[in-house]
Amino acid sequence: MKTALLFGSTGLVGGHVLNQLIQNNNYSKVKIFVRSSIQINNSKIEVIQTDFNNLEKHKEEIEGDECFFCIGTTKKNSPDKNEYQRIELDIPKKVARIAKSNNVKSYFFVSSGYANSKSSGDYLKYKGLVEEEILSLGFPQIGIMRPSFILGNRREFRLGEKIGIIIFKLLNPLFIGPLRKMRSIHSETIAKAMIKIANDNIDQKIFESDQISDLIK
């Protein structure tokens, strides 16, 4: 029986990861790291109220078998450039380093399609830099998920994403061959794929959007 560490349990993908971990009998404990205390009535769950400005304080708690990192933000929600960098770059790199130092065996990260450390845009650049950090740390098992446009029920209304859903529904059938990785993907699909990778010992580190979908067909 395994212990999972989950960062981003209240988010679009992370919420589905939490449900999958609760339902999966391979896990006896799920530690969720959250900014504010929340109530979850499940014997598997350990809620850890986390100071993300001082992750070293939680070093002894970031121990387990597998770490699932699903935290992310937007420029709209984090307009301050330094705060945006902290959430998208600094925190995931720090969590990965602590997890590795504690001999966590597996690390799973929700990145983005076309992530690239040399990108001119902050979002894709930060995702790429985190990917490079995770790969350099040498976890025995790594699952870097590169989804395209993510579908799902978000808590807040985002007009741009509503428009995006309509556009991708029209374009998805046109994305064939090498372009399949551009197809939109549901947040639950990503979560299910992460759990499958963790438990089937799949020997691959980076998964493009179409490969994520293929995993759970």
Rank of each mutant, 00 (worst) to 15 (best):
S187D: 08
K192M: 03
K181V: 11
R35L: 03
I142K: 12
T189K: 01
Y107M: 13
S111A: 06
E60L: 14
E83C: 03
P140V: 10
K29C: 07
D214M: 05
S111Y: 09
L137F: 05
R154P: 14
K29Q: 12
K57F: 09
E188W: 00
N19S: 07
D214G: 00
N53A: 07
Y126M: 14
I212C: 04
G11Y: 01
L89M: 10
Q49E: 15
N201Q: 09
E63R: 15
K205D: 14
S117I: 05
L5Y: 06
E63I: 15
I150A: 02
K57A: 08
F175N: 02
G138C: 10
I142T: 15
N41L: 14
I185D: 00
G177K: 15
K57L: 15
F168H: 03
S117A: 14
S111I: 12
I98G: 02
E83P: 04
N199P: 10
K217E: 11
S112H: 05
L159Q: 04
L137P: 13
E161A: 04
A198Y: 02
I71N: 06
Y114G: 01
T50H: 06
Y84N: 02
K29D: 06
I185G: 00
P140G: 02
G138K: 10
I91V: 14
G14E: 05
I166E: 07
L171N: 03
I71V: 15
R146E: 03
Q141H: 13
R97P: 03
Q211I: 03
S184W: 09
C67Y: 11
A4Y: 05
S101F: 08
Q49P: 09
L159W: 15
E60D: 13
K118I: 03
F52I: 08
I197D: 02
F109I: 05
K94G: 04
V47P: 08
V13G: 02
G8W: 01
Q211R: 04
P178N: 12
T10I: 12
E56V: 07
E61G: 00
N54F: 09
E161V: 10
Y107S: 07
Q23C: 05
K192Y: 00
I142P: 06
I98W: 13
I212A: 01
S119L: 05
P92N: 06
N77P: 03
I22E: 04
M1D: 13
I91Q: 06
